[in-house]
Design a protein around this nucleic acid. Structure first.
Lengths: 341, 341
DNA sequence: TTGTATGCGTTATCAG
DNA sequence: CTGATAACGCATACAA
């Protein structure tokens, strides 16, 4: 049996006793077809188990109904949330998703883009793996629309969607200030890293508006252990005798991990949280879990994915004359028992 | 400027002063081309920024160098590990990955497959979202090779790769028995669910070989809270006075979450772990984290992805005369402080 | 070794 | 409304 191949439109047409043109029109609905032939074609199609060959169609239409998604290979919950929402969004437009991972390495990144262009994807969504390196990859895309998500590399024409960092910090500072904080210490941000410096400055800026002082603790690492060490230093420095506390009245941690470490130590050493010190985190590491032990900021990855798709579809539709758009999404403040009610 | 289009092979050929055939041969290396023309074509190609149109190529070759990956939409770390490893594996073969999520719903599942067939993917890797529903979807793939991964639906021709469940349970029981356990209680498995019943039976079977009794606690849920409740019942039932314990000397939990709950309660109530009772988990929920607080089994998702790709590539190469292969991978035992050294 | 011509499966154009 | 036919861009059988 050599009929293993999929039936073609010609097969359908023959079976229905019409031309391929009519068969095509009947199936796509691009042009009106008489009810009679319409029915015949549909029947023939069904009885043969015909499925349109997307490859041929793409070649003819110069459009693949496909978008490429390029992600750095951090195995985090964030990125899988992003993948899912992008996949979802595309599905609504009957588009497919081709996925590629990139190392933080120039050539590989570039190859990914090239390969996607070779496949003639209609658009690309990329989370730039490296801020120094990805620009030219992105620009290599040329006429095909690109949307950056999460991270952001300055380019001429690409849209981007990211977190509204200022909003994030101001939400958190406001939350603490509203609950009586007057002296905030930042834990787990590295004053030698550009991105972290920006965050610290942003915290200080909003702090100033609320009359709250914000300073950064020495960097001890942005993981659980770093939180533990930072908290132990705090306790040895500020906890005097029993229940006395001359330290900051609020701690802002880089993420939930750090906050967990901090919380564990403070409580173990008898420092009341949130009574004496409030603790909050800038980044929810496990959006799945709904334990409200720490007040934290949930980054809107699913929403970012949706927005990226929206921008991309729009850009695809609109052709080449566009202006770069940047959309920033606010994080969600998830109150927990580490700050006052 | 209407030259926004990508250059075609014809453009390259013209620029190099050769026929398209020669240009094609020079670039693909399918047939020998004189050094001189070889060079000319390469140059022309580079200077024009030519990139082979994969769509046209696929149509001609009847091969897309693409595989579809269909996943249920559980946002777990497991699946992202799977995606990554599949993506990796495919990359080694210069193949692309098109990703689709499926609901546990028949029509949607079927549509995914149909869409992939329409795109003429060379193969499909699928984690069946529902054991009842996916069979016909899989069989709809017809001539194109399918590999199931993680879950397994009985079909005629599809390969599959999964966890070696028997091996998993026996590893865990052996680990506990080697450390003196003689009476194991299973926590967090549901004696009313088929899959769980099989696990319980498997535990009992290996227990019998080692002279260890295995019974299952009443099902209180397979999450943290379930572990807590189960442990509290145990304590109230078996903890007599101070430090007396007449209960099981080992607990096997459905997953790390349950184990965490159990551990917290036991330690809080003064039951020594692993001194009096050892605790282990059947499923490592956060393979990323390296906290060794619980002895647990790490499921080999990355390896499963690799294996799935291997099977698929092989099946694609081999054509239609194949026999269904099933490969089972052993989990990795990660010792932690909840069992004895 | 190189060139010419054909077809992969669809869709759009242009006549009827 | 319908049909014949010409692309889409590439790779190969066949001829030179």
């Amino acid at each position: 049996m050599d009929t293993a191949d999929q039936p073609t439109l010609a097969d359908v047409a023959e079976r229905a006793g019409v031309s391929v043109a009519t068969a095509s029109r009947a199936l796509t609905g691009a042009r009106p077809v008489s009810d009679d032939l319409q029915r015949k074609v549909r029947e023939a199609s069904k009885s043969l188990g015909y499925r349109r060959n997307t490859v041929a169609s793409s070649l003819r239409l110069q459009r693949t109904e496909t978008v490429g998604l390029v992600l750095p290979r951090y195995t985090t919950t964030f990125l899988s949330a992003l993948i899912e929402s992008v996949s979802d969004g595309l599905e609504h437009h009957d588009m497919s998703l081709v996925l590629r991972y990139s190392e933080p390495d120039a050539v590989h990144d570039r190859e990914n883009i090239e390969s996607l262009i070779g496949r003639r994807v209609d658009g690309i969504i990329i989370c730039p793996p490296s801020l120094e390196v990805s620009r030219e990859s992105i620009e290599a895309a040329g006429a095909i629309p690109v949307v950056q998500v999460g991270r952001f590399v300055e380019t001429d024409r690409s849209d981007s969607v990211g977190l509204d960092e200022d909003r994030a910090t101001s939400m958190l500072v406001a939350h603490l200030a509203d609950r009586g904080a007057g002296r905030i210490l930042v834990v787990g941000l590295d004053a030698d890293a550009t991105a972290d410096v920006r965050r610290i400055r942003a915290l200080q800026a909003t702090g100033a508006l609320r009359g709250v002082s914000v300073s950064a603790a020495e960097f001890t690492g942005a993981v659980l252990d770093g939180g533990i060490r930072a908290a132990e230093r705090l306790v040895s420095e500020y906890a005097s005798g029993d229940d006395g506390w001359s330290g900051p009245d609020a701690l802002v941690c880089a993420n939930d991990d750090v906050a967990s470490g901090v919380l564990a130590v403070l409580r173990m050493r008898g420092v009341a949280v949130p009574g004496t010190v409030q603790v909050a985190s800038l980044l929810d590491l496990a959006p799945g879990r709904e334990d409200h032990s720490t007040t934290t900021l949930r980054h809107p990855w699913p929403e970012m994915g949706r927005e990226a798709v929206r921008l991309l579809i729009d850009a695809i539709g609109r052709g080449s004359d566009r202006v770069a758009r940047r959309v920033s999404l606010a994080p969600q403040l998830v109150p927990g028992s580490s700050t006052r009610p």
